[in-house]
Design a protein around this nucleic acid. Structure first.
Lengths: 230, 230
DNA sequence: TTTATACTTCGATTATAACCGAAGTTTTCA
DNA sequence: TGAAAACTTCGGTTATAATCGAAGTATAAA
């Protein structure tokens, strides 16, 4: 024994459902304060505080202090990848009825992931941005090209304002249902807000999202996106 | 909630140190009987039996019955990958003796990861494939180039047969000791089998692997690999 | 300096599950 | 048919840790 790092220590940290709920919330890549994480996990602040201390101790998350505020985020993208890899072998949510099935399908097709778009639509959109030359893929982030600057400006999204927000701008986020990256960060959020605003998409229960008729036309004309079955 | 697979369920299965010891033993790819797994984990047969039932129930391992014998093995290479990925973020084992150190070094240099090569050798080999233009790195998988098709064919590896297997073909697998990717999937397995077959490498205890003299020459001449200290 | 906010620490309770002894089941072999 | 081998199930014990109320600490604003 002892010739390998002990993976069960990490597994133990992820095994508790409250801690798992917090980690899942932090997959959104934005730093979140303890009280919000407690709320997401449906536990008291005291309990959350204990859990967060363990996660920090185990190097799964780290904390940034700003005065009396403390923002928690994942310690590295390796942690996100570990969670993603466990998700691949985790049992799918049980499907006991046609209703369960169609709800899950809806979520696979398009959903919000924290505050941006994920699922097939999220990935298609992100890949269209890259295809059209508006985004380039970096190691951890997407980069907005000169063409992209113009495109998002024409789309009424103020990039400078987004860059000044104290959060990631154009983060890459791995999609569990598509196994590909989609756009997260403040730009991902701005795109989601804009599409909702334009009524190209509508929110459904369970963080699912549907594309409207107007949306289908708009997505095709502006980005050439066609194959969203809905 | 509940629209995402629950990774904490899998984490819980891996969190117990006895179960972790059994899973680690099963990373060796050989099917093992319950009594041997109990011995590896230092627990009674009754306790082991309970753990094994849970691992089967959770789809991490599966059991093959031959009369009164039952051999357990990992359910899929995804399970091996999940364990490896958790190992990346797990704390390093404490080294208390020269013996500990040299055993760890052997495993770092070259080992098998389920059914393919990992460690420094696994990464060097994979990077040589990329360097020579035989593989390209994709999002989740490696892609075999036209040059690669020819190379693997000359190496007596039948890519079409591998692609037709009901499993991943050229998976990227993150290496816990090198923190870089190596080649997994059916192609990764075929490469391992081929190298063993050519006697370029030999299996050591603890899933470590050593490069033979012939192997050193072969790896240099075919791929320009030099810097494996052994 | 006082008060409010945001979080941590302590202590007691409770739920979970790991553990093994003992007894039971299934299959093989003599 | 009986005995041995290989494993599973049951039951009771024990250890771990998740939980929250209450009290404590640190920072900021009034």
């Amino acid at each position: 024994m002892g010739s390998r790092p002990d993976f069960s220590y990490v597994a133990k940290l992820m095994a508790d459902s409250s801690r798992a709920a917090m980690l899942e919330a932090l997959l959104g890549l934005d730093g979140l304060p303890a009280n919000e994480l407690a709320r997401k996990a449906n536990i008291s602040l005291q309990t959350a505080s204990g859990h967060l201390a363990k996660l920090v101790e185990g190097n799964l998350i780290r904390v940034e202090k700003y005065g009396r505020h403390r923002y928690f985020r994942l310690a590295s993208s390796d942690v996100a990848q570990a969670i993603e890899t466990l998700t691949v072998i985790a049992p799918s949510p049980s499907i006991n009825s046609l209703k369960d099935f169609s709800r899950l399908e809806k979520v696979r097709i398009a959903r919000t992931c924290y505050d941006h778009l994920a699922g097939k639509l999220g990935v298609l959109l992100t890949e269209a941005f890259i295809e059209k030359g508006y985004l380039e893929e970096g190691e951890v982030d997407f980069l907005v090209t000169d063409m992209g600057e113009k495109f998002f400006h024409d789309f009424d999204i103020d990039l400078d304002a987004l860059r000044n927000k104290r959060r990631y701008f154009a983060r890459k986020c791995l999609d569990w249902s598509e196994r590909r990256y989609h756009l997260a960060g403040s730009l991902g959020n701005a795109v989601l807000v804009k599409l909702l605003d334009l009524r190209w998409i509508e929110k459904l229960p369970d963080r699912a999202v549907k594309v409207t008729k107007t949306g289908r036309v708009g997505l095709y004309e502006s980005l050439g996106i066609t194959d969203i079955q809905m």
